[in-house]
């Protein structure tokens, strides 16, 4: 019992008043992850639009709003899209953005807000959350690589929902960085404050193979390239982000595999 109490006391500075996800103030809010988009001559991004209200049995024509942010986290485009009910609907991000004269950057973040909230979800005092599926096509490959959304990052008033840590935390990516591979690690700041982030690649003898420090603005994504690691290594991300879970792009020559950390 004393041991349990000690464990709780030791954990308190890491958990008290530091929620992973804050509840939106408005009970009729809808929530989205901040997904990473990449569009240039090598990349395209797709999003699998599911009509969540239809999945809950709500009939009728539904819409989503999509909001895009550039590589500095600045909003540069938004639009409404009609959903196709229980048909599959793949959103080609390059096509959506092709109406713009010029893209402000070739990567950034985006979020998707469902405009219809099923009554059953309201009754359960829950919030609809878009944490769906993004796919990336690299160098026109005949297969896209998929990754699911992970965080309840932002509400439809564009309020960021991730909490902030009082102390610096380490996110030790449980993934083996291999010598013959190239990686790009994408990390999004889903909190409302600027965050200093330290990336460190270390080998299993504790030697530091690479270090990079940045400041991430809210809604901003940073993409860290890692290549030519001399030994197998692991990535450590130090910041006041509560869950600094990155998206990992792994390259094997022209082949690309993406997954969540």
């Amino acid at each position: 019992m004393i041991n349990n109490l000690l464990r709780k006391l030791k954990k308190a500075p890491w958990v008290v008043a530091q929620p992973l996800t804050k509840k939106p103030n408005n009970p009729q809010s809808v929530i989205s992850d901040l997904f990473v988009w990449r569009c240039n001559q090598d990349w395209n991004t797709y999003f699998e639009l599911l009509d969540l209200a239809s999945l809950f049995g709500d009939e009728g024509q539904h819409q989503v709003g999509i909001v895009f942010f550039d590589n500095n986290g600045e909003n540069f485009h938004q639009k409404s899209i009609e959903l196709s009910g229980l048909y599959r609907q793949v959103l080609d991000i390059y096509k959506v953005l092709s109406t713009l004269k010029q893209l402000p950057s070739d990567y950034g973040t985006f979020c998707i807000f469902h405009k219809k909230i099923p009554n059953s979800v309201l009754k359960l005092q829950s919030f609809i959350a878009e944490r769906g599926y993004v796919s990336y096509q690299y160098k026109n490959a005949p297969l896209r690589s998929y990754v699911h959304g992970n965080l309840d990052a932002i509400d439809d008033g564009l309020a960021l929902l991730s909490g902030s840590s009082f102390l610096n935390r380490q996110y030790n990516l449980q993934y083996l960085l291999e010598m013959d591979r190239v990686y790009e690690i994408a990390l999004v700041n889903t909190s409302s404050k600027n965050k200093k982030v330290e990336f460190k690649v270390v080998d299993f003898n504790d030697s530091v193979l690479m270090e990079k420090c940045i400041t991430l603005k809210p809604k901003q994504v940073f993409i860290l390239p890692i290549k030519d690691v001399p030994n197998p290594g692991q990535l450590v991300i130090k910041s006041k982000i509560i869950m600094a879970r990155p998206v990992v792009f792994c390259f094997d020559n022209d082949k690309m595999d993406v997954f969540h950390g």
């Binding site: 996800t21 809950f56 919030f127 959350a129 297969l143």
Partner: peptide, 27 residues
């Protein structure tokens, strides 16, 4: 020659907060 792999979330992940498992049961 090329592979792709991902899993879907359980239906409870379509919502957050409140009674998520009530939502899963309903759907």
């Amino acid at each position: 020659e090329i592979l792709s792999l991902e899993h879907t979330h359980p239906p409870a992940s379509l919502v957050v907060h409140g009674n998520r498992f009530g939502a899963q049961k309903q759907i």
